Amino acid sequence: MLLYPNPAKDFITIQSTQPDITGLTLYDATGREMLRQTFSGSAFTLPLTNMSPGLYYIILRSPDGTQRQYPVVHVK
């Protein structure tokens, strides 16, 4: 799994070696849900232009229910 760039300014790209991502949830540092998105495929670009700078967590979901968490730093 690749998440780049990190720190990110305008967007973050999520790439998987297999098409196993079914969705993501983005949380801020306080645990507040900021975005929930479903998709299919092995790559996704998440725009961050409307987000405040800070620390966020992306939770990626797979078809079998597995969830993986990744920290993302957003800078202006």
Rank of each mutant, 00 (worst) to 15 (best):
V73P: 04
V72S: 04
T30I: 02
T25L: 09
A8T: 04
Y4W: 06
G65E: 01
T22I: 10
Q15D: 00
V73E: 12
T38Q: 15
R36I: 09
V73Q: 14
Y4D: 02
T25H: 05
Q15T: 00
D20R: 03
P5A: 11
L48G: 07
Q18M: 05
Y4C: 04
L60Q: 03
N6L: 11
D64R: 08
L60W: 00
P53T: 13
G41T: 07
T25A: 14
L48T: 15
I21W: 04
T45I: 12
R61L: 12
D20E: 09
I12A: 15
G65A: 08
I59C: 06
Y4G: 08
S62Y: 01
M34K: 07
P19K: 02
Q37F: 05
S62G: 05
I14Y: 01
D10L: 08
L35F: 11
Q15P: 01
L60T: 07
M51C: 08
E33Q: 15
G41D: 10
P53W: 00
T49A: 14
Y4A: 14
P7G: 03
I59G: 04
L60D: 03
D10N: 15
I14T: 01
R32G: 09
L26S: 04
V75F: 00
L55V: 13
Q69C: 11
F44R: 06
Q37T: 12
D10S: 15
M51Q: 09
L55D: 08
T22Q: 07
R32W: 00
L60Y: 01
Q69S: 12
Y27Q: 03
F11E: 13
G31Y: 04
Q69V: 12
I14N: 03
Q15A: 06
M51T: 00
D28P: 05
T45M: 11
S62L: 07
G41C: 04
Q67C: 14
S62Q: 07
T13E: 08
K76T: 06
Y70L: 10
I59Y: 03
Q69N: 15
H74C: 14
L35C: 12
Q18P: 02
L46M: 09
P71W: 01
T49R: 15
S40D: 07
K9S: 13
